[in-house]
Structures are given as structure tokens and as C-alpha cells.
């Protein structure tokens, strides 16, 4: 399968600590890849490197054959940040139309995406007056509106009710079906089952990669939470860092 994102020996230092320790991975084109790991494991940092806003110490990130962050890529990539980044002193519609306009897209596109994320009724409402989940969806709409070839979504379903979460995943599936590459992070293992491929990350290193079924059968469990735990124990045992278990 063609590669959309290629990460090679990526090391990132934030503050005084190294938070990504020379990781390498390939994200294939046209599918949904899940990046899973506990809070603080480095998911957001990896995403920032992919969209080109993170200072990296060493290693390379290549997206669609171009170095991450290059001017041409910025027309082809969409980024949904973990904490919503939209203008709270504008309405939902004004926000989405603004981000659409940066890619020469018009009001009609903006309005249809607003409907898709379920904010049609709130379109004229100031973002500052939205609920948490609605605020996130306004931010998501700004990422979806530009029809990017590569969509980087940092915990997009957190705080959404089950019905909406289902709809969003259907929408992600639909986008992948039309050729987009999606990378979605989550710390909810349950969501991993919806991805085509998984990257499990912990403390800045990749623990395992593969499809959900592949990882489940490799670890001999049907539960991805359990699978993650087993993989971590295995690795700790190998490296001798694991605690002695009686």
C-alpha cells in the first residue's frame, strides 16, 4: 500500500525531557490509522510533528512525499487540535467560513459541513456560548471543510455523545472511502476497533503496530485494552525494566 506519512527516527525534546525517542512508522494512504496510547504518551507531539509545527531534535517526517510543514502541504492537510482552536468571539458559521476561505472555498461548503457535524441549529451562535461538545465540533468542522487529503485528528470524539460519535466515525469512514488518509488519536481502546491500522504508543516509543485483529490474535485476547497491557508487560520484561511480579 502507498505510504502517506513516513516517520523516521523521530526524536522530540519538549521542555527538559525527551518525549519521542527516535520513533519510525509508516501511515498508509486512503485508510484510517489509529494512534493509541495513554495520556502523556506523545500522541499530540507526534501529530504536531506531522503537521509541521513541532520543533524536532532529529529524524524526519515526510507527508505525501514532502517534508512535513512545507508550504505546498499546507493546502492538502487538515489538523484538528486536541483542545478546540476556533475563535470564541465569532459565530460557528463565521469560523467555518473563514477556514474555508483560506482554501478558496465558499459559504455553501461551510454550511454543509456545519450540518454534517450537527451544528445547523447553532450556526449563528457565538462559539463562546456553545457546550463543550459543540465547541469541539465547531473546531472539527473547520478541519473537515477544506476536504484535505490528509486529516490529522487529535482525539476528535472525546466528549461527544454515542450517537454523534457513531455519526462522526461513519463520516471518517466515508472520507477514507473517497481516498483521504486519516490519522486519529484516542486513548479509548474501544475506538481502535474502527480503525484499519493501529499504532500503539507508550512513553514516547511505539509498542506495536498492525490491524486490530492482528494485534488481538498476536496477544491472544479479544480485548484491546488487555492486548495493550500484555504488549507493555512483554516489552518491559524484555528490556528488564519491568517490576518483579510474584
Amino acid at each position: 500500500m502507498e505510504t502517506a506519512i513516513e516517520v523516521r527516527d523521530l526524536t522530540v525534546v519538549r521542555g527538559a525531557r525527551e518525549v519521542l525517542h527516535g520513533i519510525s512508522t509508516d501511515v498508509p494512504r486512503g485508510v484510517i490509522t489509529g494512534l493509541l496510547g495513554p495520556s502523556g504518551s506523545g500522541k499530540t507531539t507526534l501529530f504536531r510533528a506531522i503537521v509541521g509545527v513541532q520543533i524536532v531534535s532529529s529524524g524526519t517526517v515526510t507527508v505525501l512525499g514532502k517534508p512535513a510543514g512545507s508550504a505546498e502541504l499546507r493546502r492538502r492537510i487538515g489538523y484538528y487540535t486536541q483542545s478546540p482552536s476556533v475563535y470564541t468571539d465569532l459565530t460557528v458559521r463565521e469560523n467555518v467560513r473563514y477556514f474555508a476561505s483560506l482554501h478558496s472555498l465558499g459559504a455553501a461548503e461551510a454550511d454543509s459541513v456545519i450540518r454534517e457535524v450537527g451544528l445547523a441549529e447553532q450556526a449563528g451562535q457565538m462559539v463562546s456560548t456553545l457546550s463543550g461538545g459543540q465547541h469541539s465540533r465547531a473546531s472539527l468542522a473547520c478541519a473537515l471543510v477544506t476536504h484535505p487529503e490528509v486529516l490529522v485528528l487529535d482525539e476528535p470524539t472525546v466528549g461527544q455523545d454515542p450517537v454523534l460519535r457513531e455519526e462522526l466515525w461513519e463520516r471518517f469512514r466515508d472520507l477514507a472511502g473517497r481516498g483521504a488518509t486519516l490519522v486519529v488519536s484516542s486513548h479509548i481502546m474501544d475506538e481502535a476497533n474502527r480503525c484499519d491500522g493501529l499504532i500503539l504508543i507508550r512513553e514516547g516509543s511505539i509498542v506495536a503496530e498492525g490491524g486490530p485483529d492482528e494485534i488481538k490474535s498476536r496477544t491472544g485476547t479479544d480485548d484491546l485494552d488487555q492486548a495493550f497491557l500484555r504488549l507493555v508487560r512483554e516489552q518491559d520484561a524484555e528490556s528488564g525494566h519491568g517490576k518483579e511480579v510474584a
Binding site: V53, A71, R74, I77, Y79, S83, S85, V86, Y87
Partner: peptide, 13 residues
Amino acid sequence: TSGTLERLFTTPV
């Protein structure tokens, strides 16, 4: 501080 600047830097702006 709102993260919109960082987001803008991932767009053609």
C-alpha cells in the same frame, strides 16, 4: 494562546 495561531500555521496563511 487560543491555539488558533498554531492552527493557522498548518494552513496556507
